[in-house]
Design a protein around this nucleic acid. Structure first.
Length: 459
DNA sequence: TCTGGGGTCCTCTGCCCT
DNA sequence: TCTGAGGGCAGAGGACCC
């Protein structure tokens, strides 16, 4: 290699666009179509099918009728009466997501998952093996298709904001005549990036939701170009210091956030909207136990525990209340979570009924290796559940239920019941791993007022 | 005919301690 | 002994993302 070639190579490397944003096209819909090919070509809506469900994803055929994500399913059905409505199955989507992540990681270890269906990749170290950034983008598209049968769109640019906007520009579009294929890959060269950025409406930027958008409109900011031209002081007055400074930088093409692979989650939560508002304290207590069980189950499955327990309640008028408590030590068992949640719920006024109840655990730390078989593991859906109902009494300890509850109320996580709870959780995980999640759940009555030796478990 | 679920991050407020 | 300032932390809520 002579001197001139060396210079050329150095220029080529520094000019490479390092960030890719990969976004699956109508991901949930396409996973459902892989499962049921009869859905191909028909308008499909994936989402909650209950009275209060909303659309999680819609096929491009359904989008042509005006259906979009977050729309109430009932309204989507009216807009598109021909649509097939499929209830979301997130465990199935998670499986597909794992296969996609494996493709990404075959190219670079610098993968930052954003959701089940999208991720940022930093490919600056992958050029020797896989070629230029555009070549890597096209390779990823075909590799994902080969591995999963699903399509994705890829944006290639110098930073995350631009790559994200580029992947949107690469996506299929919907017109009156139906869906039209997209570019597949959109590359935003450095020379064109400000023109590309400034042409977007301001709500295209990450961090501009309905509230911020309203405030920006108040100061006559409608496009990213408008935003870039606004004096920073004016912006800070309108939307606050941190937010204003951040958005101003993004609008000027400055976004040096690195791609960092995901670590342990900050929180694990489970919440549910009831079909009708719930007023009955016993029912609320039972739902609390069920939600605590779901959260605890996921914590154990991932080898995690958390210290801060938060309950969330949504009232019929849609107002939200949260109450939180930080425990002395990390917990991961349903009884202790439920005990803490009961105490927090007792602080809230439930007299008007509630439409949603949620439990979250934050302040997360790793405990040990994940449970051998998660409750959503491969055994869950493959083995048939027993036909009859089963009532089990698990020999997990001899302490009285009353003493256990008193200890949990006093300071969950630090009592002698920890071992009992751990063994109980392990037993639940093992049973669910073998027969499926639905075959066993906590009996709220047993948790609430079980006398010594009277704990009963079963559906 | 209403408005999900699972997350993250930021700001404000109140309390405790020095 | 009382009071105020300031830091650290927890709790509550808002906004946003997919």
């Amino acid at each position: 290699m002579n001197g001139d070639q060396r210079v050329e190579l150095a220029v080529a490397v520094t000019d490479e666009l390092p960030i890719l944003h990969v976004d699956m096209d109508a991901f949930y819909v396409e996973v459902e179509r892989k499962r049921d090919p009869a859905l191909v070509g028909r308008p499909v809506i994936v989402g909650g099918s209950g009275r209060r469900g909303v659309v999680a994803s819609a096929s491009y055929e359904a989008r042509a009728s005006g259906v979009h994500a977050a729309m109430p399913t009932a309204r989507a059905r009216r807009l598109c009466p021909d649509a097939v409505v499929v209830t979301s199955d997130f465990s199935g989507y998670a499986e597909a997501s794992v296969a996609i992540a494996e493709v990404f990681e075959s190219v670079t270890p610098h993968v930052e998952p954003i959701a089940l269906d999208e991720a940022f990749l930093d490919v600056s170290g992958a050029h020797r093996l896989f070629g230029s950034s555009p070549e890597i983008a096209w390779h990823l598209r075909s590799a994902v298709r080969e591995a999963t049968g699903l399509d994705c769109s890829v944006g290639v640019a110098s930073n995350k904001t631009l790559a994200k906007l580029a992947s949107v520009a690469a996506k299929p579009t919907v017109g009156r005549s139906g869906p039209r294929p997209g570019l597949g890959v959109r590359i935003v060269e450095r020379a064109e990036q400000l023109d590309f950025l400034w042409a977007h409406r301001v709500e295209a930027l990450w961090g501009v939701g309905p509230v911020t958008l309203g405030r920006l409109h108040d100061i006559d900011v409608f496009s990213v170009g408008d935003l870039a031209a606004v004096p920073i002081e004016r912006l800070v007055t309108a939307i606050g210091s941190a937010h204003g400074t951040h958005l101003s930088a993004l609008a000027n093409g400055i976004d040096d956030r690195p791609v960092h692979p995901g670590g342990i989650p900050r929180s694990v939560s489970h919440e549910e909207t009831f079909d009708v508002d719930v007023r009955d304290p016993d029912r609320i207590r039972g739902e609390t136990v069920r939600l605590a069980d779901a959260v605890a189950s996921r914590l154990r499955a991932n080898g995690l525990a958390g210290r801060t327990v938060t309950v969330k309640v949504k009232y019929p008028d849609f107002s939200l209340r949260t109450r939180a408590h930080t425990l002395a030590g990390p917990v991961q068992t349903p009884r202790i979570l439920a005990g803490a949640a009961h105490a927090l719920i007792a602080k809230l006024d439930l007299s008007s009924g509630i439409r949603l109840l949620g439990i979250a655990v934050s302040n997360i730390s790793e405990t040990s290796a994940p449970a051998a078989r998660s409750e959503a593991g491969d055994g869950a859906d493959t083995l048939p559940a027993p036909r009859g109902q089963l009532q089990l009494e698990l020999d997990v300890g001899r302490r009285s239920a009353a003493a256990s509850d008193a200890a949990a109320d006093a300071e969950p996580g630090l009592t002698g019941d920890a071992e009992v709870d751990r063994r109980l959780g392990d037993a639940l995980d093992a049973i669910r791993g073998r027969f499926g999640r639905a075959v066993i759940s906590h009996g709220a009555a047993g948790l609430r007022d079980g006398a010594p030796g009277e704990r009963r478990w079963g559906r």
